[in-house]
Amino acid sequence: MNDIAFNRLLVVLRHGPHGSSWLREGLEVALVGAALGQDVSLLFYGEGVTALLKEQQVGPLAQKGTQPMLEMLPMYDIESLWVDAEALATYDLTLDELVVPAKEVGRHEVSDLFQRHRLVLNF
């Protein structure tokens, strides 16, 4: 945990890519923050870890998918990505199955992660 910089904005994503607009609207905040020059970190927490699964499709609801937004993160210099280790285990996932590189964080370390950010927004 000590290698993270004192990033200013942490966006916590707690919803999967389908079923609601929470993930999309959370990612939009992250991209806007980065476009405004903030250092942005993302924490994929609980169900939010499923946002990172590869090969997602748009689906029959014809809403824009969130995977293209995730692929844009490096272009916005959003490289501090954290995933909830417990949720990864719950969904039986490993880091190499994720669409972008991310680091695991234990639930007991989450409060520490929050404290290292000036602004935390929860979606």
Binding site: L9, E28, V29, V32, G33, L36, R118, L119, L121
Partner: peptide, 11 residues
Amino acid sequence: TGLGQLIDAGL
């Protein structure tokens, strides 16, 4: 207004 105002408000 735009989302930038939310970030700004937070900071």
